[in-house]
Design a binder for these strands. Sequence first.
DNA 1: CTCTTGACTGAGG
DNA 2: GCCTCAGCCAAGA
Length: 109
Amino acid sequence: MQKETLNFFEKVYQVAKLIPYGRVTSYGAIAKYLGAAKSARMVGYAMNGSHNKEVPAHRVVNRKGLLTGKHHFEGTNLMQQLLESEGIKVKDLQIQDFNKIFWDPANEL
DNA sequence: CTCTTGACTGAGG
DNA sequence: GCCTCAGCCAAGA
C-alpha cells in the first residue's frame, strides 16, 4: 500500500503527460485537480523526478505563466526553447497569451 | 526531533 | 500591477 504522497507524485506525472500540445498549466492547477490545492509546491517538488519520466515539465509553469523552473532544465534557455517549439510565445521567461493557452485539468479534463 | 529550503499561491497594502 | 507576509507540505542536513 503506497502512501498518498507517493500516489500524489504519480498523479502529477500523469496529469503533466496529459497536457495538450501547445498548451500550458500551472502547479496550482494540477495540485487543485488532485485535491491538494495547498500543495502546489509539492507539484514542483515532484517535477524534480520528472526528468527521468516522459513528463513535459516545460509545459508547467507558475500561476503567472513565468518559467520559474527553467533553472532545473539543462542550459539556460532550454525550457523557453521547447515552449517556442510548440508555438508558445515566451518573452524573458514570461509566457505570452498565457490566459489563452492555459490548460486547466480540473476544467478541461 | 528541529531548522532550512523550495519548479507555489492567495491575501493585504 | 508590484511588493511583502503567511500558509502549505515534503525532503535533506
